[in-house]
């Protein structure tokens, strides 16, 4: 019994916005199953009363003074854009016909 099925992997790919091919799904599903088998070992550790660590060192939030500092020009910000128009990022349509 695999810990993750091919269908579940296909679902993850949709959530992660990756258009996997059938061949990739065939290849990835058993590998992910193996890896999940490995990482599931964390559940062998009894840790009910242990606090989680999200970060290596204790942190407090830092605020900076609210002053203007130099930043990228519009030309610099757009310099790596796949498409730009009128000093803006041009993106594909975000709504479908029916919407």
């Amino acid at each position: 019994m695999p810990s993750i099925t091919r269908e579940e992997v296909a679902h993850l790919a949709r959530l992660a916005r990756i258009e996997l091919s059938d061949d990739e799904l065939d290849h990835l599903a058993p590998q992910l199953d193996q890896i999940i088998g490995l990482v599931a070992q964390v559940s062998d550790v009894a840790a009910e009363d242990i606090p989680p660590t999200s970060h290596a060192l204790p942190l407090t939030n830092v605020m900076r003074e609210d002053v203007n500092v130099p930043c990228l020009t519009p030309e610099q910000a757009l310099s790596g854009a796949p498409a730009a128009e009128e000093q803006r990022f041009r993106v594909p349509r975000i709504l479908t016909e029916e919407a």
Binding site: V39, S43, I50, P52
Partner: peptide
């Protein structure tokens, strides 16, 4: 998974 991994990180 993630929650338990963070606890292991503490340990």
């Amino acid at each position: 998974y993630y929650g338990q991994a963070q606890k292991v990180r503490t340990l």
